[in-house]
Amino acid sequence: MSGAVKVLTEFLSGLGRSVFFLLQILRVIPASLLRPQLIVRQLYMLGQLSMIIIVISGIFIGMVLALQGYRTLVRFGASESLGVFVALTIIRELGPVVTALLFAGRAGSSLAAELGLMKATDQLSAMEMMAVDPIERVIAPRFIAGLIAMPLLTMIFAVMSIGVAGGHAVGVELLKVDAGSYWSAIRGSVDLGDIRDSLVKASVFGFAVSWIAVYQGYTAAPNAEGVSRATTSTVVVSSLAILALDFMLTAFMFN
């Protein structure tokens, strides 16, 4: 019993510290926005460098969805609905969730490791001693870049999986679903509300992953084990948070 109480106490105190840390970040965001070059650099590091994994994953997931969807739909003579199936699945669910999971694995882990190593090598302390606030100069630009990158990457993922080479390539080119049916079904079923919901999810996931990554990195023990632990925790906690948040957001959006 005392063990459970201890775990609960540690969880709550950790949550409290991370919320306090988030408030510190939010406080300095206006000042960080005055240095856009720092944010642009992080957008490159977190967003641009995540593009390859997002694009390739999008293509393959779109192709697999088209194969699986076609197999089921064709039994009911509804193969022309393949576009709707692929598009709604990607836009509403898989787009934001898979992008966020990949983002946590690719960008979140590197963010946590980078911050952990900066701490272990006293770079953050050195900034403090140079009268430069590391939360304003180092943490906030990375946090903001994560927030911006996630919705953009989600849209790229969706375009790659539904259109260019994913669902369209397999559905239309390989399985010979009529291209007009594929795209008109998508136009008829996907409305702006779906895209809005997708972007909302992507933004919430981007917020969660960025927050978890910078917190884990900033509070890492300043040694090799601490950095390793922070990196692992970022991926594990982010993944669980993404799945839990997705359920809550979906339930809310479906009322």
Binding site: M118, T121, D122, Q123, S125, A126, E128, M129, A131, D133
Partner: peptide, 19 residues
């Protein structure tokens, strides 16, 4: 405090240069 730190320099053990 930050103003005061501008009057102090510190050399960390490993240099702590921004990599």
């Amino acid at each position: 405090l930050y103003d005061l730190r501008k009057r102090m320099g510190m050399l960390f053990q490993n240099g702590a240069l921004l990599t």
